[in-house]
Design a protein around this nucleic acid. Structure first.
Length: 1095
RNA sequence: GCGCGGGUAGCUUAGUCGGUUGGAGCACCCGGCUGAUAACCGGGAGGUCGCAGGUUCAAGUCCUGCCUCGCGCACCA
C-alpha cells in the first residue's frame, strides 16, 4: 500500500539530515546488506585512512566511489560487507606529535621517554576520528565504523608479525644497508615524501679533482658537488661505452678563478664530450679510448688514512657502471660507498670497502685527516679544497699543481631537513629489506590478472614500477609502528617471532637460560618499548636483542586483507572466503603505496594476488588546478557543500565532473549547478507527480494500465527510460560512471522534465478518472521509481525519500533495474549467467523507432520556433497551417506539434518543389577513392552546379560524368532549400546513406480569426502573470476589465476563452482605450495596445 | 632525464573508424515560453582545437619535434 503524499518545497539539507536519522533508527546500512543474505559475496576492502588529519573534499571523492560500487553491487543482489579501517602507525603520526610537543630530535624523544611518546602517538591517532566519522556518515558512505580494523591493535600487529615470519622463513627478509637522506641534527632519516618537502635551491662549491694514477703519469678527473664525501672516496666509475681522452696541458688559461690548476705538460683523462665544459687550459689530445679500457686501473687515495683497505682488492680502482652519463661532470663519477645510493650499490657489487668517514652526528670520524676530524662535514668544504690544492695534494703523491683542478660554484636543488632547514646527507644506514626482486615474475603475473580502471595505470604506471622492482626497504629507525619482530645476537644469529605465543615461549626459554626478562602476558603490548625489553636466547646460548626498528607503515596496510580478520589466529573461514578481494578503490597516489604493498605482501606471503579489481582515482585539484594538500592550505571543507547543496549534489557533481581516473578540478560552482539542474529538476518532477497523486488518491497497486494501450508519449518516455537504463548499466560495467550519470541527468532534465512532464501537464488537470490520466500517473510512477534506483548508488538521499513515498519501501533494498545476478544460484562476483541475470531485469519495453520519431518531433518543434524568430512572427499569434515535407509518418504526433508550433493544423505535403529546391553536396567518403586528387575539383562542380535538379536527374540516370569521374547517387548528398516566400526550415536526420531531409513550412498569412486568437492569448498570458504576481490561489476567481486600442476584432469565442483560462467571474471588454484607469496594467503587441485591471 | 596523463570559447567540458559547418553547460546580450522549477526554448557574441612540421584529396583526430601543466620514477656524481 503506498499512496504518495504531497511533496513540499525542496530543502535538500533538511531532507538529508532527517533521512540520516531515519536510517540510523532503521539500521538501514545493516539491513541493506542483510536483505541480500543469500547473495554471492562481493568483497570490498577499505583502504585505511589516517585519522590524525581533518578530512577534506578529496577524501569525500574517494569514499563516494567506494560507496557507489558497493551500493550498486548490493542492489545487484550481492552481499557486500564493508569493514572500516584505520591506519594508525607511521611517520605522519610521529611528526604530528613531535611538532605539538616540540620533540624535534631522537634525543628529545628518548629523553621524554619512548613509552610516553608512543602513548602520545596512540592518542593522537584518534584526534580527528569523530570528524572522519561525521563526514563519513553525513556523505552516506556506508561502511562499518563500529567494528573497524585498526593497525595498532595487538591482533592486527600479531598478524603482521606472522606475515613477516613467513617472509623470514622463505628467506625473503634480510638485513643490509640503505643510503637514505639523513639529518644529523635530528638524527633521523627521511622518506622520499618528506625529502620532497624540503628541496631548496642552493649554490655550493663543486670541485673537479685529479685522481693520480699509479704507474702512469696522468690523473683522472672527476667532479663532485659534495666535497665532504671525498675522503670517503674508494672508487671511480666510468661508462664502458663512453669515449674518454687523455690530454696534455699545453698552455695556461687566462683569468683563472678560484683554487686549483694544472701545470704545463700535465696529463689528465676525462670524457671527450665534456672537455670543453671542464677544461680551462689549452690542451692537446694524446689518446682516445672507451671507458672499458680504463677499468681496473689503480689510483692514489686522496686521503690515504681515511678508509682502511680491509680485504678489498678493488679499492681505489676504476670501475664500470652503465649509469654513468656525460650530461655533466667529467664522465667519471667519484664513488664514496657510504654516501650515495648508486655508490653503495656499485661498491657492494664491486667489493669496495664499506667504511664510514662521517659519524651519525654529521662530523668526520677520527682518523680521517687531522684537519677534518670531528668537524661538521658541511663546514669543511673549504678545508677539503685547501688540502687538495696544496702542492702534491693531501696525499702528497699528486702532481706539483695539487689534486684540485678547478672549483666552480654550482646551483642546484638539494634536499634540506624540513624541520631544521639543514642540508641532508645521503648516508648508508642499517636497514631491513624484503627481497621483492626474487618474486618479480609472480608480481607481474598477478598484476596481469587484475582488472584495472583505467587500464593504463595497471599496464603503464604500476607495471613499470613492477618491472623495475627493487627490494623493499621495510625498516624505519622510528618509534611508533609495528616493531620488526627479529631478535639478533652479536654473532648475527637471528630469530623472527611470528606470534605472541611464540614470543612467550622464547621468553620462557631465555629465562630458563638465565636471562632476566619481564613478564610476557597474553596481552603484551606489541609496541616499543615493551617488546624491546625482552632478551631472547640464541641456539648457541647467546643473548639476542630485538633489532631496533619499526616497520614501514605501508607494510601494515598491505597486510589488511588478512590482518583485519586476525588471520591466521582467528577468522579462518572469513579470510578464506574473502581473499583475494574483489574491489579496491583509492587515489592514483597509492600506486606505489597501498596498491603495491597489498600485492607485495600477498605475493610474498601467500603467493597469490590481493585484489581482482582496482579503481585508481585521479588527483583532486583545487579550482586553480593545484593539488589539494594540507601544506598548500587549499583543501575544500566538505561541509561547505554538505550544508549548502547537500551530499547528493556534492556526490553527483564529483561523479559527473569527469572520468574517475582523471584529475578533478573541484569547482564549488559546479556543485551548485548540479544541485539546480539535476536535483531541483528531479524534485520538481517528483513533486508534480506526488501532488496530483495525492490529490487523486492514486495508488499504483490499486489500478493498472497496460503499457501497450498507453499514449505514444507514455510509450516514448518509457522506451527512453529503458534505453537510458541499459546504457547506464553498460557504462557502469565499463567503470564509466561519469558517462552513465551525465546521460541519466540529460534524460531526467531533458526528456522527463522538459518534454514528458511539460507535455503531460494538462492530462492530470482533468478531475475525472480517465484512463489517460491513470496511464500518465503509472508512467510517472515507473519513471521515478526506476530513476531512483539508478541514482541511488551515486546519490542516496533524495531518491530514497522519493522511493519511500511512492512505494513505501527504501530504495536501498530495491533491485537493480537491470537484474539481480548476485542473488542467482551459483553466482560469483567474477562471472555470472548474463541471460539469467537479464531475465530478472525490470524495465519497460523499448521502441527504437518511436524514440527516433519523437526526436524528430522535438526537433521540428524547435525548428518551428526558429522559423518564427526569423520571420518575426510572435509566438502567440497562431498560423493557419503547417506542412511537414517528407520524413516518416508521425500523424500521431501532429496534435502535439500543432500545439508546440501554435498552428491550426498540420498537414503532410509530398510535393517538395512546392516549397523547396534542392542543392547537391559532395559525399567525400564515396567520392575520394574514385576522384583521388581531383576530388576537390569534382566537389566544386557538384556544389556549384547551376541546375542541381538537372544534375541530380542525370546522376540518377547514371549518365553523369564530371572531369572523367562517373558520379553515382551515393556520391552526392541532396539538401533542400526553401523557396523564396515561404517561412520554412529544413533538418537532416540520420547520416550517410540513411540521411533524410525533412522540412517544416509555416503559413505566414494572417486572418481576422488568427489575429483574434493571438490577441486573446497575449491578453491571457499577461493576466496569468498578474495572477501570479498577486499570489492568487489557482482556483481563485477574478474580475476583469479590458480596454484596447488599434486592436483587431476579437471574436466572442476568444473572449470566452480568456474568461475561462483566467478564471474570471466577471469580464468587461471595451474596444477603445478611453476610460482605462491610470492604475491599469498595459502592454503593446504588434501595434495593439491593451489595458486591463484585475480584481 | 624517463614514463604516464592532460592542454578544445572567459570557466567546466564532449568530440567514435581521419570526412569538409568542432558540440554542450555556466556566465553575458536580445527575444520568447511559463498553471512545477534556481527551469526551459529561439537567436547573438565568444575557438590560431598548446606551438611547429609531416602524412593525406581531407587532421581537433594519425606521425615527429617542441612548449606547457599534473602525477610518478630516477637523478642531483
Amino acid at each position: 500500500m503506498a499512496r504518495p503524499h504531497s511533496a513540499g518545497e525542496l530543502d535538500a539539507v533538511a531532507l538529508e539530515t532527517a533521512l540520516l536519522e531515519t536510517w540510523k533508527q532503521e539500521n538501514a546500512f545493516r539491513a541493506s546488506i542483510d536483505s541480500n543474505g543469500g547473495g554471492a559475496p562481493f568483497i570490498f576492502l577499505e583502504g585505511p585512512p589516517t585519522a590524525n588529519g581533518k578530512p577534506g573534499i578529496h577524501h569525500v571523492v574517494a569514499r563516494a566511489y567506494k560507496d557507489l560500487v558497493c551500493r550498486w553491487k548490493t542492489m545487484e543482489g550481492f552481499r557486500v560487507e564493508r569493514k572500516g579501517g584505520w591506519d594508525t602507525h607511521g611517520l605522519p603520526v610521529e611528526i604530528e606529535v613531535q611538532k605539538r610537543m616540540d620533540l624535534m630530535s631522537n634525543e628529545a624523544i628518548e629523553a621524554y621517554g619512548m613509552d610516553n611518546f608512543n602513548q602520545a602517538c596512540r592518542d593522537s591517532v584518534w584526534t580527528y576520528e569523530s570528524a572522519w566519522r561525521e563526514m563519513t556518515e553525513r556523505m552516506a558512505y556506508w561502511v562499518d565504523l563500529d567494528n573497524p580494523y585498526v593497525t595498532l591493535d595487538n591482533n592486527y600487529v600479531e598478524s603482521c608479525w606472522w606475515a613477516m615470519k613467513q617472509m623470514f622463513d622463505k628467506g625473503l627478509l634480510y638485513r643490509g644497508h640503505k643510503v637514505l637522506p639523513y639529518c644529523p641534527q635530528t638524527g633521523t632519516s627521511y622518506s622520499s615524501h618528506e625529502v620532497a618537502l624540503g628541496y631548496k635551491e642552493v649554490e655550493e662549491p663543486s670541485v673537479y679533482v685529479k685522481f693520480k694514477l699509479i704507474d702512469d703519469d696522468a690523473s683522472i678527473l672527476a667532479w663532485t658537488t659534495t666535497p665532504w664525501t671525498l675522503p670517503g672516496n674508494v672508487g671511480l666509475a666510468v661508462g664502458p661505452e663512453v669515449t674518454y681522452v687523455r690530454v696534455r696541458i699545453t698552455e695556461q688559461a687566462e683569468n683563472w678563478i678560484g683554487a686549483g690548476g694544472a701545470s704545463d705538460g700535465e696529463e689528465v683523462i676525462l670524457a671527450k664530450e665534456l672537455m670543453k665544459d671542464v677544461l680551462r687550459h689549452n690542451v692537446e689530445i694524446i689518446e682516445e679510448f672507451p671507458g672499458s679500457s680504463l677499468v681496473g686501473r689503480s689510483y692514489e687515495p686522496l686521503f690515504p688514512d681515511a678508509v682502511p683497505r680491509g680485504e678489498s682488492t678493488t679499492a681505489w680502482t676504476v670501475l664500470e657502471a652503465d649509469w654513468v652519463t656525460t650530461t655533466d661532470g667529467t664522465g667519471v663519477v667519484h664513488t664514496a660507498v657510504m654516501y650515495g645510493e648508486d655508490d653503495y650499490n656499485l661498491g657492494m657489487a664491486a667489493g669496495l670497502p664499506a667504511y664510514h668517514t662521517v659519524g651519525m652526528d654529521g662530523a668526520f670520524l677520527a682518523g680521517t685527516h687531522p684537519q677534518l676530524d670531528g668537524r661538521y662535514v658541511k663546514e669543511c668544504d673549504q678545508t677539503v679544497i685547501e688540502l687538495l690544492s696544496a702542492k702534491g695534494g693531501s696525499n702528497g703523491k699528486g702532481p706539483e699543481s695539487g689534486l684540485l683542478y678547478r672549483e666552480k660554484s654550482y646551483l642546484h636543488d638539494y634536499p634540506h631537513c624540513w624541520r631544521t632547514d639543514h642540508p641532508l646527507l645521503y648516508y648508508a644506514m642499517d636497514s631491513w629489506f624484503v627481497r621483492m626482486t626474487a618474486v618479480k615474475e609472480r608480481l607481474l603475473e598477478f598484476n596481469d590478472g587484475v582488472e584495472w580502471a583505467p587500464d593504463w595505470v595497471g599496464e603503464g604506471r604500476f607495471g613499470e614500477w613492477l618491472r623495475n622492482v627493487k627490494d623493499w626497504a621495510i625498516s624505519r629507525e622510528r618509534y611508533w609502528g609495528t616493531p620488526l619482530p627479529v631478535w639478533r645476537d652479536d654473532e648475527g644469529n637471528m630469530k623472527c617471532i611470528g606470534s605472541i605465543a611464540e614470543l612467550q615461549s622464547e621468553v620462557a626459554k631465555a629465562v630458563a637460560a638465565g636471562f632476566e626478562n619481564p613478564e610476557c602476558p597474553d596481552d603484551v603490548d606489541l609496541h616499543r618499548p615493551v617488546v624491546d625489553g625482552y632478551t631472547l636466547v640464541s641456539d648457541h646460548g647467546k643473548p639476542m636483542h630485538r633489532e631496533p626498528f619499526v616497520m614501514d607503515c605501508w607494510f601494515d596496510s598491505g597486510c589488511a586483507p588478512f590482518a583485519q580478520w586476525h588471520h591466521p589466529f582467528e577468522g579462518e573461514e572469513t579470510f578464506d572466503a574473502s581473499f583475494p578481494v574483489d574491489y579496491i578503490c583509492e587515489g592514483v597516489d597509492q600506486t606505489r603505496g597501498w596498491f603495491y604493498t597489498l600485492l607485495a605482501v600477498s605475493t610474498t606471503v601467500f603467493d597469490q594476488p590481493a585484489y581482482k579489481r582496482c579503481l585508481s582515482l585521479g588527483l583532486i585539484l583545487d579550482a586553480e588546478g593545484k593539488k589539494m594538500s594540507k601544506s598548500r592550505g587549499n583543501i575544500v571543507d566538505p561541509w561547505d557543500h554538505f550544508n549548502r547543496e547537500g551530499a547528493d549534489a556534492t556526490r553527483w557533481y564529483m561523479v559527473t565532473a569527469g572520468a574517475p581516473w582523471n584529475p578533478l578540478k573541484f569547482d564549488s560552482n559546479g556543485v551548485r549547478e548540479t544541485y539546480a539542474k539535476m536535483f531541483l529538476t528531479l524534485w520538481n518532477v517528483y513533486k508534480f507527480h506526488a501532488d496530483y497523486a495525492a490529490l487523486d488518491g492514486f495508488d499504483p497497486e490499486q489500478s493498472t494500465s497496460d503499457v501497450a494501450s498507453r499514449s505514444s508519449l507514455d510509450r516514448w518516455i518509457l522506451s527512453r527510460l529503458a534505453t537510458t537504463a541499459n546504457n547506464y548499466h553498460a557504462d557502469f560495467k565499463q567503470w564509466n560512471f561519469h558517462k552513465a550519470c551525465r546521460d541519466l541527468e540529460e534524460f531526467i532534465v531533458n526528456d522527463v522534465s522538459n518534454w514528458y512532464v511539460r507535455r503531460s501537464r494538462r492530462r492530470l488537470w482533468d478531475d475525472a478518472e480517465t484512463s489517460d490520466k491513470v496511464a500518465c500517473q503509472h508512467t510517472l510512477h515507473e519513471i521515478l521509481t526506476t530513476v531512483c534506483r539508478l541514482v541511488a548508488p551515486v546519490s542516496p538521499f533524495m531518491v530514497d525519500v522519493i522511493h519511500r513515498n511512492l512505494t513505501g519501501k527504501t530504495v536501498h533494498q530495491a533491485a537493480w533495474p537491470l537484474g539481480i545476478p548476485g542473488s542467482l544460484d551459483g553466482a560469483t562476483a567474477d562471472e555470472w549467467d548474463e541471460e539469467a541475470a537479464a531475465a530478472t531485469a525490470n524495465l519497460p519495453p523499448q521502441d527504437v523507432s518511436l524514440e527516433a520519431t519523437m526526436a524528430l518531433v522535438r526537433e521540428l518543434a524547435e525548428v518551428g520556433r526558429r522559423i518564427r524568430v526569423e520571420a518575426g512572427r510572435r509566438q502567440r499569434l497562431p498560423c493557419a497551417q503547417g506542412w511537414i515535407v517528407s520524413g516518416p509518418d508521425m500523424v500521431e504526433f501532429h496534435e502535439i506539434l500543432a500545439e508546440e508550433l501554435n498552428v491550426e493544423s498540420i498537414e503532410v505535403e509530398s510535393d517538395l518543389d512546392r516549397f523547396q529546391q534542392i542543392e547537391l553536396a559532395p559525399n567525400f567518403r564515396a567520392l575520394a577513392p574514385k576522384a583521388r586528387s581531383e576530388v576537390n575539383a569534382v566537389a566544386g562542380e557538384i556544389k556549384n552546379a547551376e541546375d542541381p535538379t538537372a544534375l541530380l536527374a542525370s546522376i540518377q540516370a547514371g549518365t553523369c560524368e564530371i572531369l572523367g569521374v562517373a558520379i553515382e547517387e551515393g556520391d552526392v548528398e541532396v539538401r533542400r532549400i526553401e523557396r523564396e516566400g515561404f517561412a520554412a526550415s529544413t533538418v537532416t536526420i540520420g547520416q550517410g546513406d540513411d540521411a533524410q531531409q525533412i522540412s517544416l513550412v509555416l503559413d505566414m498569412n494572417d486572418t481576422p480569426d488568427l489575429l483574434s486568437k493571438g490577441l486573446a492569448r497575449d491578453i491571457t498570458r499577461r493576466i496569468q502573470a498578474m495572477r501570479k504576481d498577486l499570489n492568487l490561489a489557482i482556483e481563485a476567481t477574478i474580475d476583469l476589465e479590458i480596454w484596447t486600442k488599434d486592436a483587431p476584432e476579437m471574436f466572442e469565442q476568444d473572449r470566452q476563452w480568456i474568461v475561462t483560462e483566467t478564471r474570471a467571474a466577471a469580464a468587461v471588454f471595451h474596444s477603445e482605450s478611453s476610460g482605462a484607469p491610470s492604475n491599469s496594467e498595459n502592454f503593446e503587441v504588434d501595434g495593439t495596445t491593451v489595458w486591463f485591471t484585475v480584481q
